[in-house]
């Protein structure tokens, strides 16, 4: 079957989604990321791998944090980074997505990092590049609609492997608004591919997509029941813009039932780690005591995120 993410030699051509990537590729990305974590400790935090390459951050949806981590990763690899805040530029003047891409290709782009509110936008760009024979230009999906956020999923896997080593003995819980979460989809795909035997998804019925059981996960609508004896708790961000709508009561109400508090965390294994993709809503999905507690690995996730993005860019940009 044709896989748009791999080239003819089975190597990574674009990173669009963790769904459909073989375990060897996922493991190779995590292995490549490991030595990059050390670069941050040097006096000169730069490697010459992508010297002379131009990477365009194409953010059709605002996200300062994700854009910044991609920018830092690219700069640590010595690439030239051009940030396009497309939300306020030519698409507003009526230019289509692919015309924007063609224009940037004419400026000798080597890689696009794409964030878009519509699911599938990075696929559209990758397919356009393939159809026009531009195989030396690569696309990284930095989050598309409700579909995928593969580098977030990868940095989560890196974090789990860092603290727990072996995926094949773990019980992992994903908690919160799964319905709107591209992060959750990427996490489920990666955890399953890497051999985690039990992935639990915990949240209110109104925030669960249908067909979750087909992904091979166990669904819980009782947080205490779902957290029992888990090794890893992955919290999801509750998006403020969804609050007070038909799906949800107030933030305080959500916190009461679905917020991660010390007493709920006590049901997990004593050495369980707590993760969050950020930005956190303290007092909505996570209690401050837990967020700042000894089991939280939320800030290491951010640091690992740079190394993982460096790994992906270095694997794509070697051509």
């Amino acid at each position: 079957m044709f896989n748009p993410q791999l080239n003819a030699h089975g190597e990574l051509q674009h990173l669009l989604s963790l769904d459909g990537l073989p375990r060897e590729i996922l493991t190779a990305i995590l292995d490549t990321a490991a030595p990059f974590t050390e670069v941050a400790e040097r006096e000169i935090k730069k490697l010459p791998i992508l010297r002379g390459k131009s990477i365009f951050n194409l953010f059709f949806e605002n996200s300062t944090r994700t854009r910044t981590t991609f920018e830092i990763a690219a700069k640590r690899l010595s690439a030239d980074v051009i940030n396009l805040n497309v939300a306020t530029s030519s698409t507003n003047k009526g230019e289509t997505l692919l015309d924007t891409v063609d224009n940037l290709c004419a400026m000798q782009a080597d890689m696009f990092v794409v964030r878009h509110a519509s699911s599938g936008a990075p696929y559209l760009i990758a397919e356009h590049l393939r159809a026009t024979d531009r195989h030396d230009i690569h696309v990284i999906n930095a989050g598309d609609g409700r579909h995928a956020h593969p580098t977030q999923g990868l940095l989560d896997m890196y974090t789990i492997r860092h603290y727990k080593q072996d995926f094949t003995k773990l019980v992992v819980a994903i908690v919160g608004d799964v319905l709107h979460s591209r992060v959750a989809r990427s996490q489920i795909a990666a955890l399953t591919t890497l051999g985690v035997p039990e992935v639990r998804v915990i949240g209110p019925k109104t925030l669960m997509p249908t067909g979750l059981d087909k992904l091979g996960v166990r669904v819980f609508h009782d947080m205490r029941e779902g957290l029992r004896d888990v090794d890893v708790v992955m919290m999801l961000r509750l998006q403020n813009e969804r609050m007070n709508g038909p799906l949800l009561p107030s933030g305080q109400e959500f916190f009461k039932v679905w917020g991660l508090t010390p007493d709920k965390l006590a049901l997990a294994r004593p050495d369980a780690i707590v993760m969050h993709p950020g930005p956190m809503n303290r007092g909505v999905e996570i209690d401050s005591t837990v967020a700042d507690g000894a089991q939280a690995v939320i800030l290491p996730q951010v640091t690992f995120g740079i190394a993982v993005r460096m790994a992906v860019m270095s694997m794509l940009g070697r051509g």
Partner: peptide, 12 residues
């Protein structure tokens, strides 16, 4: 590096 790529056994 461009021609050989990264070998999988990279060390820190």
């Amino acid at each position: 590096y461009g021609a050989k790529g990264l070998h999988p056994q990279l060390r820190r």
